[in-house]
Design a protein around this nucleic acid. Sequence first.
DNA 1: ACATTGAGCTTACAAGTGTACGCTAGTTTA
DNA 2: TAAACTAGCGTACACTTGTAAGCTCAATGT
Lengths: 202, 202
Amino acid sequence: MNRQEQKLRTRRSIIEAAFSLLDEQRSLSSISLREVAREAGIAPTSFYRHFKDIDELGLTLVDEAGLALRQLMRQARLRIASGGGVINTSVDTFMEFITANNNIFRLLLREHTGTSMAFRSAVLREIKHFTVELTDYTISNTGLPYNIANLQAEAMVKLVFSAGAEALDASDEQKANVAQRVKLQLRFVANGALQAAAQQNL
Amino acid sequence: MNRQEQKLRTRRSIIEAAFSLLDEQRSLSSISLREVAREAGIAPTSFYRHFKDIDELGLTLVDEAGLALRQLMRQARLRIASGGGVINTSVDTFMEFITANNNIFRLLLREHTGTSMAFRSAVLREIKHFTVELTDYTISNTGLPYNIANLQAEAMVKLVFSAGAEALDASDEQKANVAQRVKLQLRFVANGALQAAAQQNL
DNA sequence: ACATTGAGCTTACAAGTGTACGCTAGTTTA
DNA sequence: TAAACTAGCGTACACTTGTAAGCTCAATGT
């Protein structure tokens, strides 16, 4: 077996181990190096062959989570293109995502308000990216002026993420309920923004 | 010096100590009993004369934070009564609150997505209370039907709390900017809700 | 006046932590 | 084939943690 390859494999197993520890009751700052090493099946000190710190591992996890988020967006765009309504499709896709990638979304949510400045800004960067994309999409699809499209996109992202937080540990029917509510709320925002744009054009 | 009184005083100093430890980098689950005791100026084991657990202290802190939140609401209502616009006044009051009570709001924000189910639901209870009050207020002030008023209130609370999170560690001018943006977003929601109610009445 | 109570202390211990140091053994390179 | 490299390991150390046990002594109750 190739040496580099083997190293990458171990690195992967550390990352997977960390993700698997991030359940309902653990955050990045509460998992210990030794715990991760134990779960990954390596000696505590071997950890350092791959990451300088637990924090470096943490940032890697946030990056991976951000990656997943962008794949989510891509998927949503594809599904929108094949019809079904923007808001409906987006929310549904999002809800499926947080169900399938429970721990990943939880990580983002938790570290967004977490205790580490580095993690917070890493998560913020990913969310910002989300907002920027949505703003662009809105402008090219509705022709709203930038300032209004941006406000709308920001509000929508916040509402969707809040709803995601609510849905995270909810039953299927609770999830459906949350989804339905947030869809209506997004429509409030969209219509309100439209109205504001109309007034701005007088 | 009265004995009960002295005990209460020590209890207070434990609580204050805990609050003072909850700065940018610490959450309830990351402060240790010994640390709190040290800060409060008592022996670690004396802690147990006042709280069964660190968790019991944590719940007490959340309760106190909730209390502060309700005082905030009361204050907002008073200021609204003396004119100035509901959204404007509410957001301004809220922003003043999180500036003056930095650590209290941070606690709520952090534990809202934290690792302890007990803390999470304690915070959720407080936020829910906020939403219920706002729903009632909206109904009695605008005559919107319950379902729409409730959706609106929920969305508004989420947006305001998100804005609060953003403003928490921001400079004064950044805060002003966040405040201005969230006001516009709240107006989107309000107008969208109004429109939805009008359509519902056809 | 005396006995009881209880807040706070000191001491002690087992468990878990991060990480420094040096070794082993397999892979890679020359 | 010999030399260099390095992923992973075992041992060790200094800390911090929660909390059990038992003491002190001032406030309280009788």
